[in-house]
Nucleic acid binder design. Structure first.
Lengths: 171, 171
DNA sequence: AAAACCAGTTGCAAAAAGCAAGCAGTTGAA
DNA sequence: TTCAACTGCTTGCTTTTTGCAACTGGTTTT
């Protein structure tokens, strides 16, 4: 149980937790796709994660405090995975990674519209989004006056998908 | 040569380039430690990278455009590794990762003082720092009026080291 | 001419990732 | 009440990556 660290550098320690090819993908799908149980994460996976890797990552992320798991009352076998404050605070990292990826990598329009909104919204939008994730995942109370960032991101994504589908049909 | 991607998502694509335990460590050491050749990166490595892994990562990062390599005119065998615009733009990601690590991981004071300054300085400081890295790595011209962020980060680090050494000696 | 330094390479063992199939328990419809 | 579909995983196996230590051929310093 004695976790040994390579160094006390904050970058290194962050990398020790998140520095692999799947951990952030899993958290991303829970955060932006609101996928809360195993099959959802497995079958809707854009990148095609394998079930054993997913199981391993979920276990590790729960152990390390980035996710929590509770039983779904509606189904004895289902577990519900939730973000924690620790993973909710990854929003700025996701936003910066998204911005960087959009600038330098061959991203697809559909999958990068949310990153674009997050980039344009800046810190105030990230804060709103984090508050919203706290409502969704930490049972925090919702401010009914605020429009949902989550819904806005989702709507923008669906709009691009629809627009592209229409354009394709028109050809 | 046909690089195949798991998906067009910007987060995923960023992870495909940087999502391992060493790539960002190497870039961090070049960026914040100004280590420019192989031995420097190998021997001063806080985390103890192995020479074959270092060689492999340097090669990969050059191939992918995150580093450039040129011969050192003063020594026929030495190569000089430099950041590119692509890796200089990782500064915000480093800053956010540093902030996150400082909040949630057991960081050491010495190794996190730079992350603290970067966090407190915010976007304006990051922009200054990126300009400075362009001078150092891209042969851009320096604005002689501006005080160096690099020097400030370095001075703060050395100050903490000295203070802690003094405190230890006094015990 | 010798010693130290340079950027890596090589060979091998251990760990992690990836793939396909399977499993026991649960649920919902016929 | 039976059965198919669904649940969260697990197992067995192969391939890839990592980690370690020793080593290489060349260069520079003394």
């Amino acid at each position: 149980m004695t976790e040994t660290h390579r160094s006390g550098c904050p970058i290194n320690l962050t990398l020790e937790v998140l520095g692999d090819r799947w951990s952030l993908i899993v958290i991303r799908d829970i955060m932006f796709g609101n996928r809360r149980h195993f099959r959802e994460l497995l079958q809707n996976s854009e990148e095609g994660i394998a079930s054993n890797i997913l199981a391993d990552r979920l276990k590790r992320l729960v152990e390390r405090g980035l996710l929590s798991r509770e039983d779904d009352p509606s189904h004895k076998q289902k577990g519900i995975y939730s973000l924690t404050e620790m993973s909710i605070r990854l929003v700025p990292i996701f936003a910066e990674m998204g911005a960087w990826g959009r600038r330098f990598m061959p991203v697809s329009e559909e999958l990068s519209i949310r990153a674009q909104l997050l980039e344009e919204g800046g810190r105030p939008l990230w804060d709103d989004f984090m508050d919203e994730l706290r409502v969704l995942h930490l049972h925090a109370l919702r401010d009914p006056a605020k429009p949902s960032v989550f819904d806005r991101l989702r709507a923008a994504y669906l709009e691009v998908v629809a627009r592209n589908a229409a354009a394709e049909a028109a050809e």
